[in-house]
Computed example of a mutant assay.
Amino acid sequence: MSVIEYVRGDATAPRGKGVKIVAHVCNDLGGWGKGFVLAVSRRWPEPEAAYRRWHRERARNDFGLGAAQFVQVGPALWVANLVGQRGIRTGRSSGVPVRYEAIDAALVRLADKAEGLGASVHMPRIGCGLAGGKWERVEPLIAERLVARGIGVTVYDFGG
């Protein structure tokens, strides 16, 4: 069985050969404007536009916690918008927006897509930035849903 590879670098510049999916966690409000999504938008405009359209048309699609949207941004490169947080943090927030069960459900969809494409998955420490999650809770989900199925996963810690 493979393991999660940890590297220093930018997840929007995934390393290696073959088809790649850059995965990140989004909120269920349609908001896109802080955190890792800014790096995604600087590199590719399509994921933000697709996410906003997906949210806007949510009465007619599967948008919601646990959903996953896949946006092709290059010949062998995709971005996965994973809805894994309820709302956003505000000054009056109690608790954190991360929803581990939603991340888990979205990871199942991500694994299916990665398997279908023969892709590796690249991500920051999803759900652990603005969503307020703990990596000790997210990492086992990634190991169970992706690594256990033989999907290569690289986690990027920014810098260096």
Rank of each mutant, 00 (worst) to 15 (best):
H24T: 00
H24I: 02
V25A: 08
V25G: 00
V25H: 04
C26T: 12
C26W: 02
C26I: 05
C26K: 02
N27A: 04
N27E: 01
D28Y: 09
D28P: 07
L29W: 09
L29H: 03
L29S: 09
G30I: 08
G30Q: 06
G30Y: 12
G30W: 12
G30F: 12
G31P: 06
G31N: 09
G31Y: 15
G31M: 14
G31C: 10
G31K: 09
W32V: 11
G33S: 08
G33Q: 08
K34I: 15
G35I: 08
G35S: 13
G35N: 09
F36I: 01
V37L: 04
L38Q: 15
A39R: 15
A39C: 09
A39F: 09
A39M: 12
A39N: 11
V40E: 03
V40T: 04
V40C: 06
S41W: 01
S41E: 14
R43L: 03
W44H: 13
W44N: 05
W44R: 06
P45K: 13
P45H: 11
P45A: 10
E46I: 07
E46P: 06
E46G: 10
E46F: 09
E46T: 08
E46V: 11
E48L: 08
E48D: 13
A49R: 14
A49S: 14
A49K: 14
A49D: 13
A50F: 05
A50I: 07
Y51R: 05
Y51S: 02
Y51V: 06
R52E: 11
W54D: 11
H55V: 05
R56K: 10
R56W: 11
E57Y: 04
R58Y: 14
R60F: 15
R60T: 15
D62C: 01
D62I: 06
D62L: 01
F63I: 07
G64E: 13
G64T: 12
G64N: 10
G64V: 14
G64P: 09
L65W: 14
G66C: 09
G66Y: 06
A67K: 14
A67L: 14
A68C: 04
A68T: 03
A68I: 03
Q69Y: 09
F70D: 05
V71R: 00
V71P: 00
V71C: 02
V73E: 10
V73M: 08
G74S: 10
G74F: 12
L77N: 04
L77T: 02
W78K: 05
W78N: 05
A80Q: 01
N81W: 05
L82V: 02
